[in-house]
Design a protein around this nucleic acid. Sequence first.
DNA 1: ATTTTAATTTAAGCATGCTTAAAAATAAAA
DNA 2: TTTTATTTTTAAGCATGCTTAAATTAAAAT
Lengths: 218, 218
Amino acid sequence: MKNISKEDYLSVIFKNLDEEGGIKPNIIASKLVVSNAAVTDMLKKLAKDGLVDYKPYKGIQLTAEGESYARNMVRRHRIWEVFLNEVVGMAWDKVHDEANRLEHSSSDDLINRMEEMLDYPEYDPHGDPIPSKSGRMPKLKKHRPLSDLNEGESGRVIRVNDFDQKFLVYISGIGVKLDEKITVKEKRSFDKSMEVIIKGKPWNISSKIAKNVFIEVK
Amino acid sequence: MKNISKEDYLSVIFKNLDEEGGIKPNIIASKLVVSNAAVTDMLKKLAKDGLVDYKPYKGIQLTAEGESYARNMVRRHRIWEVFLNEVVGMAWDKVHDEANRLEHSSSDDLINRMEEMLDYPEYDPHGDPIPSKSGRMPKLKKHRPLSDLNEGESGRVIRVNDFDQKFLVYISGIGVKLDEKITVKEKRSFDKSMEVIIKGKPWNISSKIAKNVFIEVK
DNA sequence: ATTTTAATTTAAGCATGCTTAAAAATAAAA
DNA sequence: TTTTATTTTTAAGCATGCTTAAATTAAAAT
């Protein structure tokens, strides 16, 4: 029987590694919305499968095999996102959830065909880089969260976090999309909210929003 | 947790109902390649879910809800097949297995979009009819197995069974495809094999092959 | 009608992945 | 350093879907 959850664990681990290449069970549990106990459980299985190095209480790291498996899952996910968006015409804010399911059920052959049809895209619809067949990850241009910009600064959106569909719906609604120019008009220190200008119109956005939109650094 | 196997059971039941709208556990088990015990088990669950009417030892029938669920699964499967074949360019003999996985992981929205892109196809790449969104099934033109044709008769392929990939690879290899003309040159009574002409070339085919290729009746 | 054969169901058990509650280890605060 | 809080792990248990072996029912053959 094919095991979907293992693939989800690997992706989440891969996408949330810290600077030393490790991750805490805590983080995995919250990203996957399962109990810490479930994470411990799965870590043992992944370790037995040779996909992670796991020393109880000590640390979690991907093995070479685990990393390449995870990287391939990320690749599948992001190619699906581009395909759904560009070929099928599915909205920006819907492709993530759909890809989340499809990524577990598609052959490498299908993924490779879609990639070819799309002419080897480097970024998904939210600006995240797509690993190549061989595992190479395109460089992300330098960027910083919108929340870091100071009053008067402006720049173009290069990436947005895609973990919450409602967030995407919301920012689409105010005109945020990749490559769109955003100018910070006012920043309020008490709640870190800001007023920004998008397509000439002013919008008030919370610091939570601003932290999940990334601006290219020139 | 989403349950893939229930969907497989429903599809298999739906596609193998007898004239009275019933089916034997036996058939289900062999189509799904599981034990009879597994079938009994699942039938109880499907009955509890209101998807089948099940009286132990007596009979199995789909409820209205079960039938509509099953019909939708068949729809998903066949739309995926057409899409993979026509849009993604995947070979005739590969789309079945790929669709078998994808059908469980796609939203109705995605299926409907693909259907629209394909301009509402009525038949899948093997000639099987595709239920519409409302559940209506296009009429299959009258047809009979190639094995029924007599010496000298000929006709066009209107459908082939798609349960075995190797079978599809084989018949593709000898030039069988939808709408292709086939003429029966010789029929051997001792093993029911036959010699047929396809694109001017003679081929010997077993009765097993001939039983799974269907010819339009004019 | 009775026996034999075949199909079906029940029973017991396994693996997967989840849960909550309790125990153990680590990290933070006093 | 000791206490307190947090994180992580273990333990026990549940649901799903599968297996094999045994029991039951139905169908076929005599």
